[in-house]
């Protein structure tokens, strides 16, 4: 019985247009594979590598500046080489990707959690003072680049916290700054969706039976507008990862004691001109591949679920 149900579900899934479209887009399949590998490597790091690059006690300065394994002087023990303190670059990248992904995902979750409710309310109340208030705030915020907002918040937090506390709180602060900085775009997309839906007669039918506004928003508008916003959010993850990397590169993101890809690039940047290119190149390359793959998946989702844009 259970297996019959499962196999029926599987048949339905396999036959679905979305599955079909996925299986006919090699680029999307490749991007998904790469993303899966990166996510797996990032969160499986403690099991996949024995190095603990960010515990100072485990490092040996003797191993500093080892080039990648295939270069002259390289060691098989450190496949992508080591940095100035003898840290294994590959392990550092795995842990760094983990931080980047966490910051990217959670900051987008925060933006979506703020943007979707505000967008739905604004769209449903189009023309009222609530709509005007929400959208003006969003407009004002959109005129300031997200990086600047994140810099500002970080600055405020920095002055109000002790140094140790700040280092401990660096990742939540970063998530908060990036999340706050990008809610307007989700609010806008959701609002335009809600404006279309609220004019449809199924909403009138719900009003007719005295359904309170909050229930209409929750049961009718939300399920009908959330899809496109979540698809944009996928691309938003890639953007958030880049903002995080930029902030970290500028030195206001996560501290070097627990670095993200951006921090690794910044650290490695110092050695670029002295010939130790691998310290910065491999984290940067990983960042590019990660962002590109997430973007490609986002594009495919958008094309598949929103045929009008095709």
């Amino acid at each position: 019985m259970q297996t019959a149900k499962l196999s029926k579900w599987w048949a339905g899934f396999y036959d679905h247009d979305v599955t079909w479209s996925f299986l006919h887009s090699p680029l999307t399949m490749l991007a998904s594979l790469v993303t899966l590998l990166l996510v797996g490597a990032a969160f499986g790091a403690p099991y996949l590598t024995s190095y603990t690059p960010f515990e100072p006690g485990s490092l040996s300065l003797m191993d500093a500046f080892l080039p990648p394994a295939w270069e002259a002087g390289g060691s098989a023990a450190h496949f992508l080489g080591t940095d100035g303190q003898g840290r294994d670059v590959l392990a550092a990248i795995m842990y760094g990707t983990q931080i980047s992904l966490i910051v990217g995902l959670f900051s987008v979750l925060l933006s979506v959690a703020i943007g979707i409710p505000l967008g739905i309310i604004a769209g449903y109340a189009t023309g009222s003072w609530i709509d005007t208030l929400i959208m003006r705030v969003a407009d004002i915020q959109l005129t300031i680049p997200p990086i600047l907002i994140a810099l500002m918040i970080d600055g405020v937090v920095r002055t109000s916290m002790s140094n140790e506390l700040h280092e401990e709180m660096a990742i939540p602060v970063l998530i908060f700054s990036i999340g706050i900085a990008s809610w307007p775009q989700y609010a806008r997309i959701t609002r335009s969706g809600a404006m279309v839906e609220r004019r449809k007669d199924y909403i009138a039918a719900a009003k007719l039976i005295q359904t309170p506004a909050w229930l209409i928003l929750l049961r009718h508008i939300f399920p009908n507008v959330v899809g496109p916003t979540l698809i944009v959010a996928t691309i938003g993850v890639a953007v958030a990862i880049i903002i995080e990397a930029t902030l970290s590169f500028l030195g206001v993101g996560v501290p070097p004691t627990n670095p993200s890809l951006g921090t690794l690039i910044r650290i490695g940047n110092n050695f670029l001109f002295s010939g130790e290119w691998w310290i910065t190149f491999f984290p940067a390359f990983t960042l590019v591949i990660l962002v590109l793959s997430v973007n490609l998946i986002g594009d495919w989702l958008r094309d598949t679920f929103n045929p009008k844009l095709r």
Binding site: K200, Y202, A205, A206, I209, Q210, T211, H220, N224
Partner: peptide, 26 residues
């Protein structure tokens, strides 16, 4: 009320039984 558009007057995300039951529940 019965509306003009057979497309816009039913919530596309709801099952027909829920659509019909909405007033019963309300």
């Amino acid at each position: 009320m019965v509306f003009q558009s057979p497309y816009a007057s039913l919530d596309p995300r709801w099952r027909v039984r829920d659509i019909i039951a909405e007033p019963i529940r309300a």
